[in-house]
């Protein structure tokens, strides 16, 4: 008996307990993110600084640097995991992840345009704005190409158009960087590696305002995702308006990725592995999977960012290095774990 069918019938206590466990993990990850760094703080220091008392240096570090950064990491982690979960269901492809449809290449293209033209030097908001515009441009191109083939969203055609649009935009990026000055190249490459170091209260508030309604859309579509993950024909037989649900889910997932990538660059692995891991552990019911992947993605990203900031002393590691180095062994262990009836 799979975990997916049992709880809906008899009890809601198990999934709620699982979500509470993930909430607690996220809370611990946030506390660690606020405590650890170049200047170590005790839990008491953290709460003092949060209340606006204690040393001024601690307050500055907490309010200006660590808190916005931890909140941004959690929001982006949640966005990527949500988007990965959705793509994996819609495309019925285990390799699907938030960047598979070319959104990150589009964002990188926008970011590089703003850096090379010097806009990002003038205005703090030029880079994320251009990155978002690039992501939307890539998304429109990919869906336009896919739609033009047979006037429906075929998963295989979408994947292929994602790959070619992405390859085209990457070529454009390197073309631009070939003629750019050293400083622009450095800024662009650093951005493309992904980092939360640019977090500010403004980026966090924009993220939060955009993310919450989008996440609600995905929760609302969770039942449709369950059916779509089995197959579009089955979903149609069972009363789902397949095309409409697909549009909603694609739009929401792509939008989440675009917003996330435009503030932090593309950070690999979170959107691929977190949904898979949860599916392996707790089964494939999207009514649990959608909220659980948001919480787990947030906790994973916050922890990875804390590790990236702290393990190598003064040199910050690229966060993608941490997500892969930690994520891969955990994932391999999960894959090889004996399965007790739970299906993938």
């Amino acid at each position: 008996m799979s975990a997916g069918t049992s709880w809906a019938a008899d009890t809601r206590a198990v999934p709620i307990a699982r979500l509470l466990v993930l909430c607690a993990l996220l809370g611990l990850a946030m506390l660690a993110a606020l405590r650890f760094g170049a200047v170590p703080l005790s839990t008491i220091d953290v709460f003092d600084a949060l209340r606006g008392s204690g040393s001024l240096v601690h307050q500055n570090i907490l309010h200006e640097l660590r808190l916005p950064r931890a909140v941004q990491a959690s929001l982006v982690g949640a966005a990527l995991a949500l988007s990965g979960t959705t793509y994996q269901a819609l495309l019925r492809n285990p390799l699907a992840e938030p960047y598979v449809l070319g959104v990150s290449s589009g964002a990188a293209f926008g970011a590089v345009v703003s850096v090379v033209n010097g806009w990002s030097q003038r205005e703090v908001w030029a880079l994320p704005l251009c990155a978002f515009a690039g992501a939307v441009l890539a998304m429109v191109l990919v869906f336009r190409i896919a739609w033009s083939v047979g006037h429906r969203l075929d998963a295989r055609v979408l994947l292929l158009s994602g790959v070619v649009v992405s390859a085209f935009l990457v070529a454009c990026i390197w073309l631009l960087l070939t003629f750019a000055d050293d400083e622009s190249v450095r800024t662009a490459v650093f951005w493309m590696m992904g980092s939360h170091s640019g977090a500010s209260w403004r980026s966090v508030s924009v993220l939060a305002v955009v993310m919450l309604p989008t996440a609600v859309v995905l929760l609302w579509q969770a039942r449709a995702l369950n059916l779509l993950a089995i197959g579009e024909m089955t979903a149609a037989f069972l009363g789902t308006n397949v095309e409409r649900s697909k549009w909603w889910a694609y739009a929401a997932a792509t939008f989440l990725t675009a917003v996330g990538v435009s503030v932090s660059g593309s950070i690999g692995f979170v959107g691929l592995v977190v949904p898979h891991a949860l599916r392996l552990l707790w089964g494939g019911d999207h009514r649990l999977l959608v909220p659980a992947s948001a919480l787990a993605g947030a906790a994973f990203m916050v922890s990875a960012d804390t590790a990236a900031r702290t393990v190598a002393g003064a040199n910050e590691l690229p966060i993608g290095v941490v997500t892969a180095l930690v994520g891969v062994p955990c994932f391999v262990w999960l894959l090889r774990r004996p399965v007790n009836g739970a299906n993938v």
Partner: peptide, 28 residues
């Protein structure tokens, strides 16, 4: 040419911050 954490800059609190500026001048 060390990379330094922003937190360490805040903690060490310099008297003067010197920024080399090229073509973008004051905007940077």
């Amino acid at each position: 040419w060390p990379n330094v954490p922003m937190e360490e800059i805040v903690r060490r609190n310099p008297d003067i911050v010197i920024v080399p500026v090229g073509e973008f001048k004051g905007q940077a």
